[in-house]
């Protein structure tokens, strides 16, 4: 098998005194959509933020395209090819929709042109002059994803993309992710909405107590349901 796009080995992370990640291991291959499942507070968001370099108190190995990311400063992480959509979406209230969209610098060729982004998200085009935070929750999520697509990153990291959104918007986000998958985009996401995740993911990591406890492809879902019920309580 080809070298993974992202390889995380024995990743530990701390919030001050609190040890949150206890040796996370995971691999993401190019073109895959990976979902991390787990109950609240097991370290899913921390895993994403540690890979991005937002949490700096970390130990272990993070290799991205063969590059060791552990000493890369936060402002160089995106240039290495990682794009982050945070749980709270991070739309800037003092910027218009279009300014939000154009904010992240283009880090590599191959990003989605603005015209194509507007084709994929027509609502954003209609409201491009409005302040970013005047959009609905769903539109803000679309904007948060769209602005990363422009930059040409190789890995899209999504934290709870469907949280607090209406079913029709969740469905739309699912369609967008499928479109991105068809274009070969690699996606790593944390998602609580198990039904949504099962429709878009190729492979799952199950997390508990700060480490990965299982890793299986979408095809094994039916036989893993008992374990998922036990760990997730779904």
């Amino acid at each position: 098998m080809a070298q993974p796009l992202l390889q995380v080995s024995n990743l530990n992370a701390w919030y001050g005194e609190s040890h949150v990640l206890h040796g996370v291991d995971m691999t993401v291959h190019e073109g895959e959509t990976i979902t991390i499942l787990g109950r609240n507070g097991v370290g899913k968001t921390t895993t994403l933020r540690t890979i991005m370099g937002i949490i700096r108190e970390r130990r272990g190995e993070i290799l991205f395209s063969g590059q060791d990311m552990s000493r890369v400063p936060l402002h160089r992480t995106a240039h290495a090819g990682l794009g982050f959509v945070p749980e709270e979406r991070g739309i800037f209230s003092t910027l218009t929709v279009e300014e939000n969209l154009m904010l992240p610098p283009v880090v590599a060729q191959g990003g989605m042109p603005l015209s194509e982004i507007y084709e994929l998200f027509p609502n954003l085009h209609e409201r491009r002059s409005s302040p970013g935070t005047k959009l609905s929750g769903g539109e803000q999520q679309m904007l948060a994803i769209a602005r990363i697509l422009r930059t040409g990153v190789k890995l899209l990291i999504l934290d709870e993309p469907t949280e607090g959104l209406a079913p029709v918007i969740v469905q739309r986000i699912g369609e967008v992710l499928k479109t991105l998958k068809d274009r070969g985009m690699t996606v790593l996401m944390v998602e609580q909405n198990f039904r949504f995740a099962s429709r878009v993911a190729d492979r799952f990591y199950l997390m508990d107590h700060g480490k990965m406890v299982a890793n299986f492809p979408v095809g094994e879902l039916p036989e893993r349901m008992d374990m998922l019920h036990k760990v997730l309580g779904v």
């Binding site: 991070g90 800037f92 904010l103 992240p104």
Partner: peptide
């Protein structure tokens, strides 16, 4: 303006 609101995220976008 964006860094005034959320400097960590702006940095994660690749801005120094």
């Amino acid at each position: 303006r964006a860094a005034t609101e959320n400097p960590i995220l702006v940095q994660a976008f690749g801005v120094n």
